[in-house]
Nucleic acid binder design. Structure first.
Length: 557
DNA sequence: GCCGTTTTCGGCCCGACTGTTTTCAGTCG
């Protein structure tokens, strides 16, 4: 049982305790341990074998015994007992926005409803509003929420799909019957939300390959099988398709399976006429069509074919171009690691700089910084910087944009910092006009450099708030402000369309990780993919600049 | 259920919004 599975079980225990109305701090104790184990960098089994479970923060006598039982037996009686009392469908209710453990528990205990389907039907039949404390509005939100979940259940964000696809690919790669293998389809094109995982295999032994596919431990069921094709489901409920071709066919098939449909349409006849024997790479395929190679992220039928025929595609920004991270949290606010640890992790990635940008104090949940602590941090940064060579921590803040558009810290504090990000973290439901006016005020504010996660969207969970993006772009261009691409796979905010429009207006974009943990620094790769899908080149991205150029740019805004 | 030293019991992140109420419980970030 690995760290993730144990974390999941402890999280579920916490949810079930909440639903049963137990002491909320008991639930939180389990949740904290789950969180810690999830983020641990070493295998918990190894920790257990080598040093026992003594040192794990938040683990006392009771939780230690349960952890031990799980690690020794792979099972937990306490967990089984809770499952008896809280059916899985009731747990799923917690995914409905605005519906928490109290409501889920009340619905179940008062009506016996124990699945989302039954709940949806009850809402349709107006039976939910009959329950004490619930009305028509709650009932409506439940219905809408379940509809959203149904739609989201079909898709996964790239942060889930890509690692899984790579694991599957690496697994297949290890067999001699597999001569070539690549992740294809929408995952390869880097779409933020994907419906399935597509893999292309080049092999002369179809049957052996099909047998290996079944042995991948995350393959849960096979839905369809033909000699050169397997379709099935993987562990978190994600569909996959594997296409097996003769190795000679591989490169053309790679273009075809990568898609998209709109991209392929104008070139499909020519592709079908190609003599595959002369092809040794994907570049060869495009070359044979008298075209420039088109990076997968551009293959969406948005004019890339036309430009490739004229050899006029932009050179897209790449991960190697990124010189530093401009949005990082530490344990001064809600991050997991110290300033030193985050800086060390950033330096290990080969960065020249990292801006430390904690939350400001109005975001109390995150232990946001007030002016005093912020200046203390700036001092700590100064100290640390003396010890580095070729790396620098930049001072900064992710200052809250308050409801009226004013900032959570005074100008005389902000002006002392290298990087000021301004972000919205509250009052998501203002009217479009109010929200726009609020953000515009921040854009116009003299010391703001970057607007963080502009729309606040959470893919598959929450749409962005109502805001006039064009008005923001106009103002950002006028005021020489930078827009962030927040690289969290469930944010990717701004999205690719907005990034593209920003580029056409000459607005620079900062691709940032928003890391709260040192492992999160790597998420910036998703932001780079998103930027590439928005056709951005190195010159469009602020943090491709070296330290001195970056600081000069920020000073001369 | 965990933690600690001014505590072995009494705290444990907190403020605002929403939808239900008619003064508040539940949810969220």
């Amino acid at each position: 049982m690995d760290n993730r599975e144990i974390a999941r079980i402890f999280d579920e225990i916490a949810d079930m305790l909440d639903i049963l109305g137990e002491n909320p701090f008991k639930a939180r104790a389990y949740r904290q341990v789950a969180h810690y184990i999830y983020r641990m960098e070493t295998d918990i089994n190894r920790v257990y074998e080598e040093q026992g479970l003594e040192g794990i923060p938040g683990v006392g006598k009771a939780i230690r015994a349960k952890l031990q039982e799980l690690l020794e037996t792979g099972d937990l009686q306490y967990y089984r007992g809770l499952q008896e009392k809280v059916p899985p469908g009731v747990l799923e209710m917690l995914d409905i926005p605005g519906l928490g453990p109290k409501t889920a528990g009340a619905i179940y205990s008062q009506t016996g409803i124990d699945t989302l389907e039954k709940l949806y039907r009850a809402a349709q039949e107006k039976r939910i509003r009959e329950l004490p404390g619930m009305g028509a509005k709650t009932e409506y939100n439940i219905k809408k929420g379940i509809e959203m979940l149904r739609a989201a259940r079909e898709t996964f964000n790239l942060g889930t799909a890509l690692p899984l696809a790579r694991e599957f690919k690496d697994f297949l790669c290890s067999f001699s019957c597999v001569e070539m293998v690549e992740v294809t389809g929408s995952v390869r094109r880097g779409k933020p939300l994907v419906g399935d995982i597509d893999i292309l295999v080049g092999s002369r032994q179809e049957e052996t390959v099909r047998d290996k596919i079944r042995r991948f431990r995350k393959v849960k069921e096979i839905l369809e099988e033909k000699p050169s094709y397997v379709k099935g489901k993987m562990a978190p409920g994600m569909s996959f398709e594997v296409v097996i071709v003769d190795p000679q066919e591989f490169w053309r098939a790679l273009v075809i399976t990568t898609g998209s449909k709109d991209h392929l349409e104008p070139i499909r006849p020519a592709l079908e006429d190609l003599d595959c024997r002369s092809l040794h790479s994907e570049e060869d395929v495009y070359r044979s069509l008298s075209m420039q190679f088109i990076p997968p992220e551009l293959r969406e039928g948005r004019g890339e074919i036309e430009l490739a025929r004229r050899f006029a595609l932009p050179r897209l920004v790449a991960w190697e171009d990124i010189k530093g991270d401009l949005h990082v949290h530490t344990d001064w606010s809600d991050g997991a690691h110290s300033l030193e640890e985050m800086a060390a992790a950033a330096a290990r990635l080969g960065y020249s700089y990292m801006a430390v940008t904690e939350h400001s104090h109005s975001l109390a949940v995150s232990r946001g910084l007030d002016a005093e602590r912020l200046l203390a941090q700036a001092k700590a940064v100064e100290e640390l910087n003396r010890g580095y060579d070729g790396f620098r921590i930049l001072t900064g803040i992710e200052v809250d944009i308050l409801r009226d558009g004013s900032l959570d810290l005074p100008d005389e504090v902000l002006e002392k910092l290298d990087v000021v990000i301004a972000s919205v973290h509250s009052h998501f439901r203002l009217s479009r006009a109010e929200q726009t006016e609020r953000v515009l005020k921040a854009v116009e504010s003299p010391h703001v450099d970057i607007i963080g996660h502009l729309t606040g969207r959470l893919l598959g969970r929450r749409p962005g708030y109502e805001i006039d993006i064009d008005a923001v772009l106009e103002s950002a261009a006028r005021n020489r402000k930078v827009l962030e691409i927040n690289s969290y796979p469930d944010r990717l905010d701004i999205d690719e369309e907005t990034a593209f429009r920003a580029k056409t207006k000459g607005i620079k974009v900062a691709i940032s990780s928003d890391a709260h943990h040192r492992a999160d620094l790597e998420l910036i790769r998703y932001g780079v993919v998103n930027a590439r899908r928005g056709w951005l080149g190195r010159e469009d991205v602020l943090n491709t600049l070296g330290t001195e150029e970056l600081l000069a740019y920020l000073r001369n805004k």
